[in-house]
């Protein structure tokens, strides 16, 4: 049998990134500040993870201004959604095999 660990997504092995993707697959879109609030993290930390996810094309970004304040909204791309699902499936297989 194939090693299920090979199916894990290298990017999503970071817990914070997995959490970000989980919010973006359950919601159509989410803004930076609300994400920060839910993950209870800092601006810098979240920005770093978002950059990484953006670079992998797991998320798409939409920057705009609301009341002259910058408003950044993120969406999960199809690639991001598929990778998230694959990663969860791999996790499931790993945890099942252990039992």
């Amino acid at each position: 049998m194939k090693n299920p660990f090979e199916n894990l997504d290298r990017i999503l092995e970071h817990r914070a990134r997995l959490q970000i993707m989980s919010v973006l697959v359950t919601n159509e879109a989410y803004d930076f500040n609300s994400l920060k609030e839910i993950l209870q993290t800092t601006d810098g930390n979240l920005a770093t993870h978002m950059k990484a996810l953006e670079k992998e094309k797991y998320v798409s970004v939409n920057k705009s201004f609301v009341d002259r304040k910058p408003n950044t909204r993120y969406k999960a791309t199809e690639k991001g959604k598929t990778s998230f699902k694959k990663h969860l499936d791999a996790l499931e297989t790993i945890l099942k095999q252990r039992k």
Partner: peptide, 16 residues
Amino acid sequence: YEQDLSSIRTIMERSV
């Protein structure tokens, strides 16, 4: 990995 899974469960719910 188990903790990864349980952490996203609450986050998904709270995000909605």
